[in-house]
């Protein structure tokens, strides 16, 4: 503790308020407050200012965090070993006050590259002739978009989250494997702090799709979706995309296409996708 002897009274009282005075000075201030009304008034003003400011700062914590900021952290991690790119979070109001403006241009290029890479993956995952890319692109995009919409809707149905509950896991596997045409087992994601809640049968991109639903300790819902696809010799690299509040990590493996869906603010989606890929 720093001595405050000789410092202005408001500084000493402020330190007293924070409990950052040496013991000898605490008793000195105690005595002062007991006998000196001016000191008491000043102390009460300091306390009032503390309470007001604390309230204002606590309110600031409830402001929503921009998704672009969350995304930038996830992307920065995948760029480990390289100079990280920056994603523009807001257009500069004034070029002269723009914060490192050139990096925004570079970031725009990265975004276009990411979109292109995502589209490339989506095109590849359909295994259709290259002569029809526009149609295939639209169809595959719809598959992910439809699943994002389904996930968003069912995640809010707290009492009817799953069509068949987790207690009937064997039935879920038998039913969905037959409906989708893909053999699978239900991944145990307890190491990722996710509890299996049950399953649903959906239609996405015109194909039957199995949806396995999980819940984390905060009540956030995660989906593992799969549908039949043409076989690939080895697992494809995961592609990470964001649809508003949701993050989707998709890949192909064996004769199926997979996607893990969860809150876009969760940086562990890729880790979960990795676990699913190994366990399913």
């Amino acid at each position: 503790m720093e001595s405050t002897q000789g410092l202005p009274l408001e500084v000493r009282l402020s330190a007293y308020l924070d409990g950052q005075l040496p013991n000898a000075e605490i008793s000195e201030i105690d005595r002062m407050l007991a006998r000196d009304e001016q000191a008491r008034t000043l102390f009460n003003r300091l306390k009032l200012g503390s309470d007001l400011g604390r309230k204002a700062f606590e309110d600031m914590l409830h402001e929503p965090v921009p998704l672009a900021l969350v995304r930038s952290i996830k992307q920065a991690a995948t760029d480990t070993g390289h100079e990280p790119g920056r994603t523009p979070l807001a257009p500069p109001a004034d070029e002269a006050r723009s914060y490192a403006g050139w990096t925004r241009i570079a970031a725009s290029g990265l975004i276009l590259l990411a979109v292109g890479a995502g589209a490339g993956y989506l095109l590849g995952s359909t295994r259709k002739p290259a002569a029809e890319p526009p149609v295939l692109f639209a169809t595959t995009r719809n598959w992910l978009d439809e699943l994002a919409d389904d996930h968003r809707m069912y995640a809010r149905q707290s009492r009817h989250l799953a069509e068949v509950p987790a207690a009937r896991s064997a039935e879920i596997v038998e039913w969905l494997a037959a409906a989708v045409g893909v053999e699978f087992s239900i991944p145990d994601l307890s190491a990722n702090k996710l509890d299996f809640e049950g399953g649903r049968l959906l239609v996405a991109g015109g194909r039957p799709t199995a949806q396995l639903l999980y819940k984390d300790e905060d009540g956030e819902i995660f989906s593992v979706c799969l549908q039949k696809a043409e076989p690939v010799p080895q697992r494809t690299d995961p592609v990470d995309i964001i649809r508003n509040d949701l993050g989707l990590v998709s890949w192909q493996q064996g004769a199926a296409a997979f996607v893990v869906i969860g809150p876009s603010s969760d940086p562990a989606l890729e880790t979960i996708a990795e676990a699913v890929g190994q366990a399913i």
Binding site: T4, L7, E10, V11, S14, L17, L46, K47, L48, L52
Partner: peptide, 17 residues
């Protein structure tokens, strides 16, 4: 730190007063 903290508190209290 100490002097800025007391100044901040007094300014904030002045606002509420």
């Amino acid at each position: 730190v100490m002097s800025r903290l007391s100044t901040a508190r007094i300014r904030l209290a002045a606002m509420i007063s």
